[in-house]
Write a protein that binds this DNA or RNA. Structure first.
Length: 512
RNA sequence: GCCGCGUUGGUCAAGAGGUUAAGACGCCUCCCUUUCACGGAGGAAUCACGGGUUCGAGUCCCGUACGUGGUACCA
């Protein structure tokens, strides 16, 4: 039987499919998801595509892919409808109008026939230094073309003629509109300072304001998380709830703090400028062809991406910083979400990834690293060999892409040798050491680490050279540079033949 | 301009009237390692400012400054 008694907690992530999914967006989904899972609730993905002029092909699929990569699976979505569909607002178009009309009947909204030009004119005429952006509000609405200012006959005539109109909310005068936000607590607004927002557009589509309220009601949303950029329009939503469905049915709001870039608001430009990704995954705008790099392709592990995002605006109150999704679900609490915006720090982001690479098993890393080498056309030999290599170098990799540089030399002789690192201290004695070493290594019966090391060290003693002075040249010969795991380990792994080849070829390079 | 929200080291942050103001990233020094990392030990660095309230304020109140969001038939 279904052991989970379905909780009444229902949350939704409601993106507009207009482009890439940036950090802030993913964090909003994350907090939604964590909250839902924590309370055994339902996580819904609703596509807010009411602005047909901003439709971008592929953006919706892109969102699914990002969520999937992040390990976030919606319980209900356009692709997996539950009982409150459709899950795309464009497909719910017919549902909104009646609510807008109901408001008109109750005197809480009105028809407005103003054209774009009328609005522009109103704004330019009322614009002053003290009021650079005049609002369509109580002070001016009686001077406009709407059902409040016009006589009933004219209004009826316009409607019959099919003159285009929008429906605007009629903001009440002298009211304090307040609500209790889960993060900001009591927030209040003066109704006089809020304008008569458009609810239903001329094309019959609702604006965001009407659509969120209606959909949240119809979809039985219990808790609504969104970015803080929405806080200013909250009074419109509160009023709509009051007029249409009752404040007692309104979801609990939580306005999440913004994620900022190095200089204020985080933009995709910041990414290009400072060399860090801003989107979850690579995104190319189909119209402008503008490309924006994603965390995935940059070499981030989804676990790390989720982890770092979770910590940007929340912490568990302990010193723990590394959290898996399961741990986040267990520990997350909305009370511990911060009020203030957090500046994104790429250095810290990389640290999270580094930690997660170290935490990951070679088993888990294998497909990712293998894929990396395939794109570079490197033959990675057997799976076991490859996995040994991964285990050896993973603590040296911050991004998945680092695995290339950190381990190509296990598969191919290095293209270039940092000969300058050995030349200054090179001499006849060392030259002869390596020549003899090759002969001795060739004779070695078993090619294991200890044998190689003993052979190397005994010969060094014989030649009265400190082994340490020879290890660096040896490393350069095998690896090409001053990095990587223990030299004898490397020699052992790449095999006798390859080791000898590399030493010999390096010898000629050093002497030229 | 107006309205909303915010303000603890460079960054993320703990802190809910009495603390030597945690911890992490980054930076620096040292140890380990004759490579690079990992690991370990240290170090520099903070309560935006001004007034209150209080025996006592990073914590409460009020201003100011600064930041940020909104001010669209975009979300």
């Amino acid at each position: 039987m279904n052991e989970n008694k379905e909780s009444n907690i229902r949350v939704r992530f409601a993106p507009s499919p207009t482009g890439g999914l940036h950090l802030g967006g993913v964090r909003t989904v994350l907090y939604n998801y964590l909250f839902a899972k924590k309370h055994n609730g339902t996580f819904i993905l609703r596509i807010e595509d009411t602005d047909q002029s901003r439709f971008v092909a592929g953006a919706e699929d892109y969102i699914y892919n990002c969520l999937k990569w992040c390990g976030i699976e919606p319980d209900e979505s356009p692709e997996k409808p539950g009982s409150y569909g459709p899950y795309r607002q464009s497909e719910r178009k017919a549902m909104y109008r009646k609510y807008a009309e109901q408001l008109i009947e109750n005197g809480q909204a009105y028809y407005a026939f103003d054209t774009t030009e009328d609005l522009e004119k109103m704004r330019s005429e009322n614009k002053t230094e003290d009021n650079p952006s005049p609002q369509y509000d109580a002070r001016i609405r009686m001077k406009m073309q709407n059902s409040l200012a016009l006589t009933n006959e004219v209004v009826q005539q316009y409607l019959q003629e099919g003159k285009p109109y929008v429906i605007r909310i009629k903001m009440p005068e002298n009211e304090i509109i307040s609500f209790n936000d889960m993060i900001h607590h009591e927030v209040s607004f003066e109704s006089n300072l809020v304008d008569d927002k458009v609810l239903l557009k001329a094309d019959g589509m609702p604006t965001y304001h009407l659509a969120v309220v209606v959909d949240d009601y119809l979809m039985k949303i219990s808790h609504a998380f969104r970015g803080e950029e929405w806080l200013s329009s909250a009074p419109v939503h509160i009023l709509l709830w009051k007029y249409l469905f009752g404040l007692e049915n309104m979801p609990q709001w939580a306005h999440l703090p913004l994620i900022l870039g190095p200089n204020g608001k985080l933009s995709k430009r910041d990414g290009a400028k400072y060399g860090f990704p801003v989107y979850a995954m690579n995104w190319t705008d189909p119209r402008s062809e503008e490309f924006t790099e994603g965390f995935k392709e940059k070499g981030f592990l989804p676990e790390a991406f989720i982890n770092l995002l979770a910590m940007l605006g929340w912490n568990g109150g302990t010193e723990q910083e590394l959290f898996s999704m399961e741990e986040l679900i267990a520990e997350f609490s909305i009370e511990r979400v911060h009020k203030s915006g957090a500046k994104f720090d790429y250095e810290k982001a990389k640290w999270f990834n580094h930690e997660w690479i170290k935490k990951s098993t070679t088993e888990a890393l294998y497909p990712l690293v293998k894929n990396l080498f395939e794109t570079k056309n490197v033959n990675t030999q057997t799976e076991n060999y490859f996995k040994t290599v991964i285990g050896l170098v993973k603590e040296r990799c911050t991004l998945i892409s680092d695995f290339y540089e950190q381990s190509v030399y296990f598969f191919e002789a290095p293209q270039t040798l940092d000969v300058e690192a050995v030349r200054p201290k090179w001499n006849e004695n060392k030259q002869s050491f390596f020549e003899i070493l090759c002969n001795q290594l060739a004779e070695l019966k078993s090619w294991d680490v200890i044998e190689i090391e003993n052979c190397f060290k005994n010969l060094a003693t014989e030649k009265s050279i400190k082994p340490g002075e020879l290890q660096l040249p040896m490393r350069i010969m095998l690896v090409g540079g001053k990095f990587g795991p223990a030299v004898f380990e490397i020699a052992h792994l790449i095999g006798k033949e390859e080791t000898l080849n590399r030493i010999q070829s390096a010898l000629t390079k050093i002497n030229n």
